[in-house]
Design a protein around this nucleic acid. Structure first.
Ligand code: SF4
Ligand code: SF4
Lengths: 157, 157
DNA sequence: TTTATCGCAGACCATTTTAGTCTGTAATCA
DNA sequence: TGATTACAGACTAAAATGGTCTGCGATAAA
């Protein structure tokens, strides 16, 4: 529960790799899969979703593969997450799936939970794949817990 | 993905109810389940876990039930989550389950993801069940996204 | 123009997690 | 004594996840 899927993990690994290569650099599924010991077929699917969402660009040809379509700084973890797994929500009532919750009529905790969710989404949006490969000290979108107590956060945008 | 389970949802509903009653108030599973249309047996299990974790106190007798064991302010959503579902982690490598990830050897995104996880956990810890039943304006542990940009957060402790 | 290399698409299956059910035991008090 | 409550755990059903298999389409090098 509350865990990222393996597909998202794969997507982040691949994108991080491409972000480091970058400037038009092209990587193909087979190489990435081999490097990280990821089942090639499943990584292929993931890449296709990233492509459909406009995060990466496909080059279907020999020596082809994928390249970033937008700058690494603009690819947030949240974007990747949504591209690979669809809309995100920490409670059943607030993601895409509209199956009305049995408890909704009596529920008086929805509003605070949605705020909580917004905070989480905000952090996911604030972290870009550019920052993924960097050491913690360099991170801007994400801080360690302690700094939250006294210091304001600054959005990278 | 990244979603709270129904059991946690049930636990939060029940605890919120008990927090509002409170001061030694006793609620029993049958009543709570009826109020929220929760399957009684499953709510019973959830309450037992909360009891084992020391968040609530059981009174096994006619007219018995459960009461809060510690103040509502000290029962964080994270505590509830851990009580009901066990250790929390957004990636496979950092929760309780030690099944070594295939990608771990080559993984260079672990550290930032753990920071991200810490932030999420911090938010879950900062939100108490006391605040659950209150209107968003009153919330201290959770803010809307916008306030994160300029305002420091203040922990309730 | 052939052909190997790449991505595209979707059906399919296995495993794990989640949700819910069923049955029975133990404690307490009126 | 017996109604009422919690406690415990096996069990099943459904859904999400992770992974596999097969075939097609695009492209550029040979
Ligand atoms: S119980 Fe409330 S918060 Fe949970 S899914 Fe239902 S409506 Fe949403
Ligand atoms: S790929 Fe990296 S971050 Fe993801 S589970 Fe494995 S070690 Fe952890």
């Amino acid at each position: 529960m509350l865990k990222l899927t393996k597909k998202v993990d794969y997507a982040l690994l691949a994108l991080n790799l491409m972000a480091k290569a970058e400037e038009g650099g092209i990587s193909n599924v087979r190489d990435i899969a081999a490097l990280y010991s990821i089942p090639p077929e499943i990584l292929a699917k993931v890449m296709q979703k990233l492509s459909k969402s406009g995060l990466i660009q496909s080059h279907s040809a020999p020596k082809g593969g994928y390249s970033l379509k937008i700058p690494a700084e603009e690819i947030s973890v949240l974007k990747v997450l949504v591209a690979v797994e669809g809309p995100v929500g920490i409670v059943s009532c607030s993601d895409g799936t509209d199956k009305t919750c049995q408890q909704r009529g009596q529920c008086d905790i929805r509003s605070p939970l949605e705020k909580l969710q917004n905070n989480i989404l905000w952090f996911l949006e604030a972290l870009s794949i550019r920052e993924l490969g960097q050491e913690p000290a360099v991170l801007k979108g994400v801080t360690d817990g302690s700094s939250l107590f006294g210091q304001p956060l600054h959005h990278k945008g």
